[in-house]
């Protein structure tokens, strides 16, 4: 059942994990994201040095899917170049839209693959994508 795949150990742990839920000293980019209709909100902080994201973290509150997605995203983009982060972001959003289904292409998403089932739950898509849209905006600055 889709729901069991989504609320796997990975997601439920990530949603409560405090590692990525913090402020970053000397963040170079901060970006707020909200889903007004459900009250999910995150503030993404990035530290970038010479085109590389050396740290990523977030604060905020919301459902397990939105918070776990943000935490997994922070893990994925830390240490990546801005271009790489942008590409991972496009792959994730493509997966949720159902446009990207190729296993090899999705490999880069690692643990965040656990959220693939959300593509079949239209009402929860905005939860899973909140942090990623926030990242997209932050990178676009």
């Amino acid at each position: 059942m889709a729901i069991d795949e989504i609320y796997t150990q990975v997601i439920t742990e990530h949603s409560r994990d405090k590692r990525n839920r913090r402020h970053i000293d000397h963040a170079t980019r901060t970006q707020k994201g909200v889903n007004p209709s459900c009250g999910d909100e995150i503030e993404l902080e990035l530290r970038e040095e010479n085109g590389v994201i050396t740290d990523a973290a977030f604060t905020g509150s919301g459902c397990a899917i939105s918070q776990a997605s943000a935490s997994m995203m922070a893990d994925l983009i830390r240490g990546k170049t801005l271009d790489e982060a942008e590409s991972i972001c496009a792959t994730f959003l493509g997966m949720i839209k159902g446009d990207v289904t190729d296993a090899e292409q999705l490999e880069v998403l690692d643990e965040a693959l656990a959220l693939q089932g959300v593509s079949h739950m239209p009402a929860r898509v905005k939860c899973a994508t909140l942090s990623w849209h926030t990242l997209k905006t932050a990178l676009g600055e």
């Binding site: 059942m1 729901i3 069991d4 989504i6 609320y7 459900c38 919301g62 459902c63 397990a64 899917i65 739950m121 009402a123 929860r124 939860c127």
Partner: peptide, 11 residues
């Protein structure tokens, strides 16, 4: 979060 409760109850 209530949305998680509702999604799981839906199952």
């Amino acid at each position: 979060h209530s949305h998680d409760v509702a999604s799981i109850l839906d199952s």
